[in-house]
């Protein structure tokens, strides 16, 4: 049992390393610099924005909980649709109630994990994609004012992916404990945080 779990961790670690190495190359590629609004600003924006962080973590956690193709389909769909929302934000196309829907995304995704909802793949992608559009829009509106928007865009997309991977890792390694109750408890906590953000 221990050997199996160790093997799982090693497999996940290598997959993570493969994806992360691209981010390193991309980071170097953008002449990172220490300027505000550069790659690291983009990288830290979703991490220090607790609403973005929890929603994206929940996406990875949900993918791990559903399993199968959803394990990678949800974390792949999120940044792709998020980038479309970001493009709308950059172009100045307004979307209604962005902040409310970001908070709602925490509640819905957290609840989906808490009740272990396993919808059809297209439906889970649609749910994640709908919320990703609003997360992307919030980022896109802030992009043009940053000092190095190209590096900023690369930074926050990489951070988004890393948070998803953290969610998947939690779901696969820790979340299966106590018959999956650890994942469900984490989902419930994210849902409660969503309620707090909605009321705040």
């Amino acid at each position: 049992m221990h050997a199996y779990r160790l093997r799982k961790v090693l497999q996940f670690g290598l997959a993570f390393l493969g994806a992360a190495s691209f981010s390193v190359a991309a980071a170097q590629a953008h002449a990172i610099g220490a300027n505000a609004g550069g790659f690291f600003s983009g990288l830290e924006h979703p991490v220090f924005g607790i609403d973005h962080l929890l929603a994206m973590f929940a996406v990875g956690l949900w993918g791990a909980q559903i399993g199968g193709r959803s394990l990678w389909e949800l974390p792949v769909a999120f940044p792709l649709i998020m980038s479309l929302g970001g493009a709308l934000g950059i172009a100045g196309v307004p979307l209604p109630h962005v902040e409310i829907l970001i908070a709602l995304s925490m509640l819905v995704l957290g609840l989906a994990v808490a009740v272990a909802w396993r919808p059809a793949p297209w439906l889970s992608i649609a749910v994640v994609g709908a919320f990703a559009l609003f997360h992307g829009h919030a980022h896109g509106v802030e992009l043009p004012s940053s000092a190095n928007p190209l590096a900023y865009a690369a930074g926050f997309v990489v951070a988004t992916g890393l948070i998803h991977i953290a969610g998947i890792g939690f779901g696969l390694i820790i979340g299966k404990a106590w018959n999956g109750k650890a994942s469900r408890a984490a989902g419930a906590a994210i849902g409660l945080a969503g309620v707090y953000f909605l009321m705040a």
Binding site: F22, S23, L80, S83, G86, A154
Partner: peptide
């Protein structure tokens, strides 16, 4: 695929 989605998303934003 995850790395590809990051690159694609960053490209669309750029």
């Amino acid at each position: 695929r995850i790395a590809g989605s990051w690159l694609l998303a960053a490209g669309v934003m750029m």
